[in-house]
Design a protein around this nucleic acid. Structure first.
Lengths: 116, 116
DNA sequence: TTAATATATGAGCAATCGCTCATGTGTTTG
DNA sequence: CAAACACATGAGCGATTGCTCATATATTAA
């Protein structure tokens, strides 16, 4: 965060000094997609639970007090983002985190909300 | 991530061992609100720019190639979340980051997208 | 003062989101 | 086999999002 303090004059963006720090649209979309995973209370709670234990859909649906389809839909979303992985065992499907980075992001976000 | 591997049987959520890791709805909402800030390509790009330099609305709107109102609306959102602060100077308003945590979150998210 | 510039804001609209309800698939049990 | 269970999935619907367009406010310049 080196706040370069640049005057606001350039009419042509290509010559603005901050230009080099502008992330391209495609990367921006992916970053946004990643953070979208945690940008919903239900998904945040799911990540929080799966961070500590492998759980099946039924457990999640009971713990969260939500409909089973609601949980399944969110799990599908998290699975598509490869943040969560599924392990089938009999008629149960156990979910767990599949991305350490996301757990760190989640923890930092949680800390930020709880203290300071 | 200590994946305790618990059997999926308890019909009553209150007695499930994972219960203690369940974050309450209010905290979950705040966490989600925090991550929502970065869960949009435009806002992610804004944070990325402001992470390196203080910029006025006009610069942002030119650099991003977006309408000025579009940028102002997103800045308003970020301001409400206290992630960004505004400094008025003449008829310009300079924005900069107001939250170190968010810069870290952003950087980690960006790294995660760029390399593994 | 008038005009131009820089920004903020409200209304409105298409797109997306997160849920519910119904139903489909696969597995186990009786 | 049939019934029950665990989960996935699609349609549909209200709420939210992110933009545009028009306009309001504030500051500087002529």
């Amino acid at each position: 965060m080196s706040d370069e303090l640049i005057t606001c004059v350039g009419e042509h963006p290509t010559q603005h000094p901050a230009q080099e720090h502008l992330i391209d649209p495609e990367t921006a979309r992916e970053v946004a997609r990643l953070f979208s995973a945690l940008a919903d209370p239900t998904r945040a709670r799911i990540i929080g639970l799966l961070a500590n234990a492998e759980l099946c859909v039924g457990d999640l649906h009971r713990l969260l007090g939500m409909t089973q389809p609601a949980v399944s839909h969110q799990l599908r979303l998290l699975r598509d983002l490869r943040l969560v992985k599924a392990r089938k065992e009999g008629r149960h499907v156990y979910y767990s985190l599949d991305d350490e980075h996301v757990y760190r992001l989640f923890q930092e976000g949680l800390d930020h909300v709880r203290h300071g």
